[in-house]
């Protein structure tokens, strides 16, 4: 039975702290951390490790006028204000990438009310938003790489358990699943990052795969 992962695994969190993940995965981790305090403190730990590494580094030689140039740069920059938290469906990193909240998404219809919007694609890693009407199933699929799914609105159930807002499901190579959106009136919106091309099972979904480019 596949392990249920409602939280971000350590290797992805450490990768995010180190800044070595593809952009699509950075986005999902940042959005998950925004909604989950447990992930936030674990991330803080891995960032402390980064700070410890920095503290212990040797010193590179600076340009002779390095400090003067930096002070000149400071005088040219605008002061940074603390960003005010704003309510909404989407956490800040996602709103920043879209340029607005859920209403600003440029959805493309897939089938039966299911919609998607590709946000970024960087090599094989893609981040997209999925919109699944309440009670409806996503096409059954398995995948070659890693897939991270973060629930932003509503919820869904799959063979791996039940997931709701803030929960993260990380599915590896062998996972076969058929997520079904909760049937409680609220449509489900998920942020999904994948790093390999998904394989859908069944003919119609395979056509959808070509259409979706996933």
């Amino acid at each position: 039975m596949p392990a249920i992962r409602h939280h971000v695994p350590d290797d992805l969190l450490m990768g995010y702290a180190a800044g070595v993940l593809p952009q699509a995965f950075d986005l999902v981790v940042a959005a998950h951390v925004s909604l989950n305090d447990d992930a936030r403190v674990r991330l803080a730990g891995y960032e402390e490790l980064g700070g410890a590494v920095l503290s212990d580094l040797g010193e590179a030689e600076l340009a002779p006028d390095s400090l003067e140039q930096t002070l000149a740069k400071i005088s040219r920059m605008q002061p940074t204000e603390r960003s005010a938290p704003t309510g909404g469906v989407f956490p800040a990193p996602l709103r920043k990438m879209i340029g607005g909240d859920a209403s600003a998404v440029k959805w493309k219809s897939i089938a039966r009310g299911t919609k998607q919007a590709v946000l970024c694609a960087d090599g094989d890693a893609t981040a997209r938003l999925l919109y699944i009407p309440a009670g409806q199933a996503m096409p059954e699929h398995s995948h070659r790489g890693t897939e991270m799914t973060l629930v932003l609105q509503g919820g869904y159930s799959s063979e791996d358990g039940h997931f709701q807002r803030g929960d993260l499901e990380v599915a590896g190579q062998q996972t076969h699943h058929t997520p079904i959106a909760d049937d409680d009136g609220e449509d489900c919106i998920c942020l999904v990052a994948t790093d390999g091309r998904l394989r859908f099972d069944g003919l119609l979904p395979r056509i959808a795969q070509v259409f979706l480019r996933i």
Binding site: A17, D26, L27, A92
Partner: peptide, 20 residues
């Protein structure tokens, strides 16, 4: 430094978690 490195070397603004 990590965020600035990603901005410059990979040429995209790094997604950062929402402030508490």
């Amino acid at each position: 430094a990590r965020n600035r490195k990603i901005d410059l070397l990979r040429r995209y603004a790094r997604p950062e978690p929402e402030d508490l």
